[in-house]
Design a protein around this nucleic acid. Structure first.
Lengths: 361, 361
DNA sequence: TTTAGCACTCATTGCCCCCGAGTGCTAAAC
DNA sequence: GTTTAGCACTCGGGGGCAATGAGTGCTAAA
């Protein structure tokens, strides 16, 4: 059943007020608002209705009303007014965005910090690959008598490498042959296409250097399957500033789940259509986040990667404002990544590729 | 003035007790301990002395005593009994150490998590370079008609790379020449040795490809100067479990400074001689950490890198136990890195080198 | 030098009562 | 029929107050 316009108006006023004050809202408070042309008694009646419909809750008999999860949901879906960013706000966001861009991981960790600062809430940032990764080409560079560098260029334009040590000497000719075999046999295939037969075929054509194929393939498979994205979390302390977390037990529970990086709706949100998503209270799967909401926004990184930023806060957060800030930020980030085609935006880029030796026997 | 043995014994007992209970310690409590052969009155007299000497404090007249910062300092330096790890503890630490080892950054973030788990306190982990980095060798790989991959092997055995795009075509011969010029002129030099004269010399010998030298040198300089190490912080929520942070304001202050990764003694600790260091309360420079202590331990990563793990907790933390656990952990980490000679310990290692394109015009 | 004893201090706890914000309901007004 | 004024009722929060008891400091005796 659809709510009457008056009920909606009152519900909206209550949620707005509660977001502002974090105190149960009284009928009188609402009645006194500029464009409320009803007495407090009328409001009371409506509030009683809204309560029995499940949109409001009453901490105790003689207290005002507080929005329920359902109330917030309705508010977020229908009632919320679009928040317009002020010039100052856009300015300060733009300012914050002066990223020293480097490696993607570092960028995301920075982005998290900025989001947290902008919203005054704990924030997280992740970068996730969306499609299957393949190898574009292999190169082998002789480094020493008994070691060489494997350089792999991937379909996302990233370049990975590994130093491989050998128990015996290798010649340039063998490496050339091996490289040719790899480039012919293994490029443009996702990791799930690496069958034993394929491997055997490549080994055959690699001839003298056949023994090296498994080592290389292990490494490459690892690279391509490396989907595990890291969640960058910052600003947890900001939660404590909000009155709903003045209860220590609650604060601790929420903070520890955040610490573990558990945001339940995350994978779903990545594959969802809508850019921005809001999870209100109990819609969060993790029990501990019952009275905590999550707002998240996606953006494109390019190279088959998607980024996602989000904040975590009390159900009573200013959804309109937070959403506006988050979207603006995400849009700009997207644009930035677009323009630069790649996560490393301004030089000199830094590559924190880990050195990796492997003794091959 | 040196304290009498009895005073020391009493002070130790008080600190031990306070660490256990977090409650002011009464003279009677001490008197009842097994090997205290004095009456509570005697203890009281001694406590009065210790108080006027500044080692103890009294929250209010009719309360027991609490160790002061000076008291803790003395305890840590002289009184603390060595804590012996139980078999169970070493077992569980060993178990926790089953690292999926990957890129150094990821390893450190994992290490932080483990330390936090082991100590039940917020923990941080960092990896810092100790010496000056140099380039060991350059390789240039033609990727396309108009792009090539620059591969740089550094003195710490790590290999970095960058995809460079050109506005014009390049030939294999030019690249060979360029590589030779770079290898001859720029290897084994720290970034501060890169003078304009050097650059000019290299450009001269690079001949046709001279235009590329500045781009490459910019990138390399960036690599070598990249000292900024990231501080990995985890487990902040664990602080709230300790009674001294039940005061929200305090908790928030401490947590936010942690959030910002501000641990004051850190650089000093890295260059200090002793492996393990303890900063008690006010010895922390950041104001907010006044009644918070930090225990940290260094270990060697190899390749000219040093690692450091530490925990942050109430001044009333079990220094003996924490120190023991931390050192044990650090030792094993060191051994692990030693054995593997490199941060990437077991395959398939993952290289999160950021893709980086640069248009060169 | 140690200890027993005692007076004194003071944070904590529980209790009671009051206050006032806010409601729900009823009856009158529109 | 809907709105509103009025009023009784509920209940959480805060202030005041006394009792409690843990702990000390000091004195005087062992």
């Amino acid at each position: 059943m659809e709510l009457s316009d008056r009920k909606k108006k009152i519900l909206r006023a209550i949620v707005d007020q509660y977001i502002r004050t974090a105190e149960p809202v009284a009928s009188k408070t609402i009645a006194q608002m500029p464009d409320m042309d009803f007495s407090s008694a009328t409001i009371r009646n409506e509030m009683a209705d809204l309560t029995s419909l499940g949109y409001l809750e009453q901490p105790h008999t003689s207290a005002g009303r507080v929005p329920s999860a359902a109330g917030y949901r309705l508010y977020v879906d229908e009632l919320m007014q679009n928040y317009r960013l002020s010039v100052d706000e856009t300015k300060s966001i733009n300012q914050a965005m002066e990223l020293k861009l480097q490696e993607l991981d570092k960028v995301m960790s920075q982005v998290g910090k900025m989001v947290s600062k902008i919203t005054n809430l704990p924030a997280y940032a992740i970068a996730a690959r969306s499609g299957g990764l393949t190898v574009r080409r292999f190169d082998l560079i002789l480094a020493d008598k008994n070691s060489f560098i494997l350089v792999v260029m991937l379909s996302d334009n990233s370049v990975k490498n590994k130093l491989i040590r050998l128990p015996v000497d290798v010649g340039d000719a063998e490496l050339k042959l091996l490289a040719a075999a790899l480039n012919a046999g293994v490029t443009d295939l996702t990791a799930d296409r690496f069958t034993p037969e394929l491997l055997a075929r490549v080994q055959r054509s690699a001839d003298g250097a056949a023994g090296l194929v498994p080592v290389i393939m292990d490494f490459v498979t690892g690279l391509l399957q490396d989907q595990q994205e890291e969640v960058f979390m910052t600003g947890q302390a900001k939660l404590l500033g909000h009155p709903e977390y003045h209860d220590l037990e609650k604060a601790q529970k929420v903070l520890s789940t955040l610490d573990e990086g558990v945001i339940s709706g995350l994978p779903a949100a990545l594959s969802s259509d809508s850019r921005t998503q809001i999870l209100v209270g109990p819609e969060n799967v993790s029990r501990e986040l019952r009275d905590t909401s999550v707002v998240m926004t996606k953006f494109d990184i390019g190279d088959g990667m998607q980024g996602m930023i989000g904040v975590v806060g009390p159900t009573r957060m200013d959804y309109a404002q937070i959403t506006a800030r988050l979207s603006y930020f995400a849009e700009n980030l997207g644009r930035m990544f677009q323009k630069n085609q790649t996560p490393a935006l301004q030089g000199p880029g830094e590559h924190n590729d880990s050195p990796e030796d492997t003794d091959h026997e």
